[in-house]
Design a protein around this nucleic acid. Sequence first.
DNA 1: CTGTTTAGCCGCATAATATTGGGAGTAGAA
DNA 2: TTCTACTCCCAATATTATGCGGCTAAACAG
Lengths: 153, 153
Amino acid sequence: MKLDQIDRKVLDILQSNAKITNAQLSKEIGLSPAPTLERVKKLETSGIIQSYHAQLDREKVGLGVTTFVMVNLVGHKKMVTDLFVARVEEIPEIIECHHITGSGDFLLKVISHDIAAYQKLMLETINEIEEVASTQTMVILSTFKESKVMPIP
Amino acid sequence: MKLDQIDRKVLDILQSNAKITNAQLSKEIGLSPAPTLERVKKLETSGIIQSYHAQLDREKVGLGVTTFVMVNLVGHKKMVTDLFVARVEEIPEIIECHHITGSGDFLLKVISHDIAAYQKLMLETINEIEEVASTQTMVILSTFKESKVMPIP
DNA sequence: CTGTTTAGCCGCATAATATTGGGAGTAGAA
DNA sequence: TTCTACTCCCAATATTATGCGGCTAAACAG
């Protein structure tokens, strides 16, 4: 499926504000509501739009500490990474897990209530995973940009 | 503002599916539509729910390469970081920018069409920023978890 | 204990919004 | 030119959100 300029505009708008009404969206892209809705549905069924999410204020829900944890595993066989990934799936505080190139094997994004909770999670859960050889943490001091809008080429 | 169990459930559901109708949401939490809506509005006006976003399939919109870029700046004075952050704001391919502890100063999340586009961005834009002393890139080979739902304590 | 207040609930009526279907205009292919 | 496929608009209908009045139960002060 190929996107035209209007589709791109729709995607831009829905990325930054998913709660816009179809009527309003149609105005902003310069079409009437019917074809606008048709386009959105097409983007959804084709899988280009995967899902819609509410974005929460981490501080206000009591998750004030976010960290990136670089993980090295004890080996690089498929079994080792499979087991590691399976464990990661079960830990809700790990909200992202990427297999990466570079000096580490995996990069995790971890959210915690505070530093104490982070420490507890590391000591009692993450570093207890059999496949983990070592970890190195980067604590986020402040976040200057966290855009939910990707620039569509 | 303090959250009760029902609020938490609402937040859980809206994080994983923001497009749910109020009627459906009310069923899932076991209330009637009116107080359900009231709770959601309260969560929005209090700022606990910040915004709603559509999540796109990166591959399908032609953004197949995601990278983390660790950046070291030429100094640590406020002016240096301010100028750096201002430049970062202007670059849409940088979708996250965090000030971190550890061996780097900043960690960026960068999305590109392909490796060539990534290389061009690094050479012509990011490494051209005056305040950048050095960068180190981690290319994401695959992503095993990317949860949009944070576990509310 | 008891009267009072308050927060939170429900059901209903109404307003706003999404959604569907029919038909018309238009560009590209043959 | 003529056909085809596409995309659009308008208008009718179905869904959904929303505001209001009244009820109930828990919290609280006397």
